[in-house]
Structure formats: C-alpha cells, structure tokens
Amino acid sequence: MIPILRVAGHILVSVQTELGDDVVETFQDAVLMAIHNDRGRTDGVVIDITALEVVDTYVARVLADTAAMAKLMGRQTVVVGMRPDVAFTLVQMGFTLPEVHTALNIDDGIAWLDALHTPGTTRAQRVGPLDAPRSEPDTNR
C-alpha cells in the first residue's frame, strides 16, 4: 500500500518501500487517483524519497514518468529528500533528471509548489480545508 497524505493543500507521497516492477503501477495509480479524487482541492504533488537508499535509473525513470503523468493532469510534482550519495551516484551515471523539479526537504518542496500558484497564499488558505479526512486509501475506483 502506498500511503498518501494531504499536507498544506498538496498531496504528499512518501516512498517507503523499494519500487520494484510490482509496486510501480500501484504507486503511479495511487498518485494519479489521488489527484483525480481531490477534484482541484490540492495544488501539487510532493514525492518524498528520504527513505530510498538506492535510486537506480529504473526508479529515477519511474519518478520522472509519474511527474509527467501528473503534469498531463495539470499538477506539478516536486521530488524531495534525495540523499547526498544518491545524488552523487545519479550524476556519475549521467542521469540528472532535468525534467523533474527537486527540493531539499518537504518544507522547501511545498514552498516551491505554493509559489507556482498565488504567491503568498496556500491552496489551503484559498479553498479551505478538505471537506473530509482522506488519509484512508481511496476505494472508489
């Protein structure tokens, strides 16, 4: 299961497990359905990879694809929490992910997403809190 939270008007996905082939589709499906089910009540997507000790070209491609899919739906994605040794390794391999926006941590990621919309305000301030707690998995597929 992929835990999806709503934080400060954005979708927050923390990648806790290794993204093997079997988990990738579930992961992408969960992110896209969260965007869809929020019906405009969230502004962007934060993918937190703090827990990932290794990001190979396959996982990097999954992150980039997920951001591209979210963008087609009208939502920007920021990847946060990349470890120093992971950043070093990806660049050494020639994989710099220019198409994915990154930030140091969740706070910086949220600040970047907020600045894309109305500077100085958050989505939460503009549209109010979500009308129901939504931390449980979405079941209406």
Binding site: E53, V54, D56, T57, Y58, R83, D85, V86, F88, T89
Partner: peptide, 14 residues
C-alpha cells in the same frame, strides 16, 4: 563509505 557503497549497490541494481 556511503558514496562508494551506494555506487556499487546502484551498479548491482542495474
């Protein structure tokens, strides 16, 4: 060290 360990682990994964 962490950099060398992550490098060899990533190569292994690929």
């Amino acid at each position: 060290d962490a950099f060398a360990a992550t490098a060899v682990t990533t190569a292994t994964s690929e």
